[in-house]
Amino acid sequence: MRPILLSGHERALTQVKYNSDGDIIFSVSKDHVICAWFSANGERLGTYHGHQGALWTVDVDSRTTLLASGGADNTLRLWEVKSGKLLKTWDFPTAIKRVEFSPDGTQLLAVMEKRSGHLGAIHVFDVNPDPEGEQTNEQSLRIVCDESKATVAGFSYLAKYIIAGHEDGSVTKYDAKSGEILHNIQVHEDDMQITDLQWAPDRTYFITSSKDKTAKLVSTNELEVLKSYTTDTPLNSAAITPVKDYVILGGGQAAMDVTTTSARQGKFEARFYHKIFMEEIGRVRGHFGPLNYVAVHPKGTGYCSGGEDGYVRVHHFDKPYFDFMYEVEREQAQASL
């Protein structure tokens, strides 16, 4: 496996995303610029300029026409993917930590940071899927998180629910129409921030990662913890791989502590766990800083990771990855033949 190293950013990466076809990767970093890359060869398609502060998050709609980004300049911006043109800017009182399109691309949610008298909130906007069309100024829904601020959020299947992960390690399910709290459970340890929430392809379950060094697989309907993956380092990101039943976890000690230890001790590796057996099956080295985000190709043929070191590493899996099976899996595969 020869990773492709993307060095278009000057500062730490904060999020990387594949589009629905998996041919384009979007990356955002603290250097204010969004980059779009072809995943096959690492060629940079273009950059999106306009943000005035560090970027925290990016998402692309299912048809790869619109791109949303949010950052520390207290704006949420909508871009045309094809041309890099800025279509719309929404201003907020505080930073935007997470954006996500609904599966059909007609809604956009933004998680607003809690700061200086402003409560953390999740804002939902109706988006006009036509890049030429007019975008609304007003949000369609606003969910205020008065107990513990939301750090991550996303739309469930059919945009029926909004699932949010909080700073205190809990996960909440909201009705996506009314904003009403339906369910709240403590998934991770108390006061351990949830750092990432990524969906399974059908969005009936998701994975959360936390600073408590674990990642959990949670069902959307019951908010039941299905699986738990325990590591030895605080996690920044977790992703579910299609095709093979694995999960990829990324983390490493906090960026501020990095200089005190060697790269070997820093645990800056992408960890692969078997999704069902919850056992670690391998690691991929490469970054020399913590991994801030891991994203999986929607077709399961590769993954990319964005690190604190400012690099995106794009990996295309080779044969051993697809061939690996546990003994029981192999027996089952043979029995079904």
Binding site: M1, L5, S7, G8, V33, R44, G46, T47, G282
Partner: peptide, 26 residues
């Protein structure tokens, strides 16, 4: 577009490189 505007087709050496081979075998 953006910073890449007008650049030729194919990966540019200043932003894209190939890292050393990693053996990954679950």
């Amino acid at each position: 577009f953006g910073a890449e505007k007008g650049k030729p087709i194919g990966p540019q050496t200043d932003t894209t490189s190939v890292a050393e081979n990693i053996a990954f075998r679950p």
